[in-house]
């Protein structure tokens, strides 16, 4: 299953892209999304962020889940 992942704020700056397609197989069990993204983009280990799946905050992708969208949400400081 291909899922569009949105990158916000400084994550988008660091990865130099605002979105990316990722392929997930959840038939075999759960997926730890933090591990998944930090393996592919090690620079994320240095950043504080939350992960949202289908607009709900979570680090774990449950088995057999239909995913429409993932977002990586760092905090913003500016005002």
């Amino acid at each position: 299953m291909k899922v569009e992942t949105h990158y916000y704020g400084m994550i988008s700056d660091r990865l130099e892209r605002s979105s990316e397609l990722h392929t997930f197989e959840t038939e075999g069990g759960t997926v730890n999304l933090r591990d998944y993204f930090e393996t592919r983009h090690p620079e994320l280990k240095e950043i504080n962020y939350k992960i949202a799946v289908n607009h709900e905050i979570t680090d774990i992708l449950p088995a057999n889940t239909e995913i429409n969208e993932i977002a990586l949400l760092p905090p913003f400081a500016g005002g």
Binding site: M10, D13, E46, I47, N48, K50, P75, A77, G78, G79
Partner: peptide
């Protein structure tokens, strides 16, 4: 509940040097 702790300052940029 969203961001429990202050971020590592090395991982954040300052408004004066990021622009808006």
């Amino acid at each position: 509940c969203l961001y429990p702790d202050l971020p590592d300052p090395k991982s954040v940029s300052n408004c004066a040097d990021t622009g808006v």
